[in-house]
């Protein structure tokens, strides 16, 4: 097996006495997309900052491309691109000038840099807007320019930290498409998000974080399957009120004429059948989103690793 691109061992970050990242372990193999998922404040961005050398770990180790980030930060920085929420650029420079500024520190020849600027601006669909000052760009355009900046030096690894935060629906869709294209191209990518749909769509392997710790890890499919026998979902074909005070009702979603009920135990199934009749109830697989929400809402049930990857 090839050596992973990223190895994180016993990573801890404390601010004062508070540990915002607490003993995290994971590996990211080459040509895979790894997702860090969790609510706001779970420690996702802090982990990415430690991966990029923007923050120093309080304890533990980060190795990327077989080097310790603390010892060879610049050699490692040459090999990854970083996109974060609300990317900032020099507002007085245009898109092309910004890319030229950031691109020239990666050792590309002038000719190659020019070519890469054009290629990446075309890739993110900003070629026609390249002469506009970045101060006049929308947030979605800035994020796309951020992707171009991250790609301009042809990195081996991409880190997307809440890259679609604060971007409108259309912009989010554009960015997701770009991230998906990069996945198809076989780029090794780390994605952090609190948006479950985004992570499920993009990632081969996911670590769910809560309060600085990994509570589950595996592929989206494996995470769902790991809750088989623990979490149940039924679709009721009448929009009759569901008694949410029943124990073990994890969530209900009502649509016109139907309602889905997610149960954390089959004990309440009898009550459901008694209320609606067996013919009107259909068992379905809980979605990834429902599985993740259940995991985050039931910390007492966590600590059980799912899938093959190492967890803390």
């Amino acid at each position: 097996m090839n050596e992973p691109i990223i190895e994180v061992r016993d990573l801890v970050k404390r601010y004062g006495k508070v540990a915002v990242v607490d003993g995290v372990n994971f590996d990211v193999p080459a040509s895979t997309t790894f997702g860090l998922l969790g609510p706001n404040g779970a420690g996702k961005t802090t982990i990415v900052k430690m991966l990029t050398g923007l923050a120093k770990p309080s304890a533990g180790r980060v190795r990327m491309f077989s080097h310790d980030i603390a010892k060879r930060p610049n050699a490692i920085k040459q090999r990854f691109g970083h996109v974060y929420a609300a990317m900032a650029f020099f507002p007085e420079l245009n898109g092309q000038e910004n890319l030229a500024f950031f691109g020239r520190f990666y050792g590309l020849t002038k000719q190659r840099l020019r070519e890469r600027i054009e290629e990446t601006l075309r890739f993110v669909n900003l070629w026609d807007e390249r002469k506009k000052p970045v101060g006049a760009y929308s947030s979605g355009m800035k994020q796309r320019l951020g992707i171009a900046k991250a790609l301009v030096h042809e990195p081996d690894l991409l880190l997307f930290d809440e890259a679609t935060n604060g971007v409108d629906v259309e912009g989010t869709d554009d960015i997701r498409k770009l991230m998906f294209d990069l996945r198809i191209q076989g780029k090794t990518t780390v994605v952090t998000s609190h948006r479950l749909d985004e992570i499920e769509l993009l990632c081969d392997d996911i670590a769910i974080l809560d309060e600085g710790k990994i509570v589950r890890q595996g592929s989206p499919q494996a995470i769902r399957e790991g809750l088989r026998g623990v979490l149940f979902k039924y679709v009721v074909s009448r929009s009759t009120p569901i008694q949410e005070e029943w124990s073990h009702v994890a969530a209900t979603v009502r649509y016109i004429g139907t309602a889905s009920v997610v149960l954390s135990s089959e004990d309440v199934l009898g009550d459901l059948i008694a209320q609606f009749g067996a013919d009107d109830i259909e068992a379905v697989e809980p979605t990834f989103e429902e599985a993740c929400l259940w995991i985050l809402q039931h910390p007492e049930m966590n600590g059980v690793p799912v899938g093959s990857a190492e967890t803390g």
């Binding site: 923007l54 610049n74 650029f89 020099f90 950031f102 520190f105």
Partner: peptide, 17 residues
């Protein structure tokens, strides 16, 4: 101001001492 606008993330992310 670079910290406030997060431009510092990009600057410190450069492979520059």
């Amino acid at each position: 101001s670079d910290l406030e606008t997060r431009l510092m993330d990009s600057l410190l992310g450069l492979p520059v001492d």
